[in-house]
């Protein structure tokens, strides 16, 4: 067998994978190992592959991904905390032929923005919602989120979430699946190659739905927040599999074709 040098291998014709041009060259502001980065990349790869960069308007939330517009090489608006679905509603109504998506954390989408989320979903706005559920308020330093698991520690539930006094975690994705306005509701993850591939398929399907004017597609990505959870990235992914997935099981929740 002929040997091959690294120089010979690293030629454009052998290129299998490189970061999409729809991500800027700016270093991500996220903590090492944070799923936000992978989720950003998946969304941008899908837009790239669909060739719709010039027709897409993204809405960034308030949360760790508030600076998504620094990394996504598309036109973007930064919305007030929780209001991205309302912002996206107007953008899509005014530009029905363009692609519009929101990218939101769990505090943004399922606490302060619950009304905007539910009503945009219920109206069946023809948009895509990407929902990063890390069970915590990452940006503000690891406070309890609507999605924080029972017994889970956070800076505002230092002894663990006591559901008797702090309420139950909200499975907003299951709730949203009940609404007639949603066409596709799914829960995915991005911690392994297989999960990344599945999530990318889901995101692609969501944008294809929008292309066909089918209604609102909602992609939850259960993700880690190693800083908020106070773990290493690898530990946090393991903890996520053991604790988050049983409560937030992965897979499609609603698929209306």
């Amino acid at each position: 067998m002929a040997e091959i040098t690294k120089e010979e291998l690293r030629q454009p014709e052998n290129l299998i994978y490189k970061k999409t041009d729809l991500l800027t060259d700016k270093a991500l502001s996220y903590c090492p190992g944070c799923g936000h980065g992978t989720a950003h990349r998946i969304v941008m790869e899908v837009l790239d592959e669909m060739g719709i960069q010039d027709q897409t308007i993204g809405i960034a939330p308030v949360g760790c991904s508030v600076l998504a517009y620094e990394f996504m090489n598309i036109d973007m608006q930064q919305a007030a905390h929780g209001r991205a679905p309302a912002v996206a509603t107007a953008v899509k109504r005014l530009y029905p032929e363009k692609f519009v998506f929101t990218y939101q954390g769990d505090g943004d989408l399922a606490a302060i923005g619950t009304a905007e989320t539910i009503h945009a979903c219920n109206r069946g706005e023809n948009i895509v919602i990407i929902f990063i559920n890390n069970g915590i308020y990452g940006m503000t330093g690891g406070q309890m989120a609507p999605t924080t698991l029972p017994g889970m520690k956070s800076s505002t539930s230092p002894y663990g979430r006591d559901v008797a006094t702090m309420g139950n975690p909200l499975k907003i994705t299951e709730l949203i699946a009940q609404l007639p306005g949603t066409i596709y509701v799914t829960r995915q993850a991005v911690h392994t190659p297989a999960n990344v591939r599945k999530t990318k398929k889901a995101v692609r399907k969501a944008f294809e739905n929008q292309k066909l004017n089918k209604g609102l597609s909602f992609v939850e990505i259960v993700s880690n927040c190693n800083s908020g959870w106070k773990m290493t990235p690898r530990q946090s992914n393991e903890w996520m599999v053991d604790n988050m997935f049983p409560f937030y099981p992965l897979g499609d929740i609603k698929v209306n074709d």
């Binding site: 608006q77 007030a80 309302a86 107007a90 905007e116």
Partner: peptide, 13 residues
Amino acid sequence: IAAINMVYGGAAC
């Protein structure tokens, strides 16, 4: 709240 944020989105377009 939703209405004014819709205005934000529309104005930004």
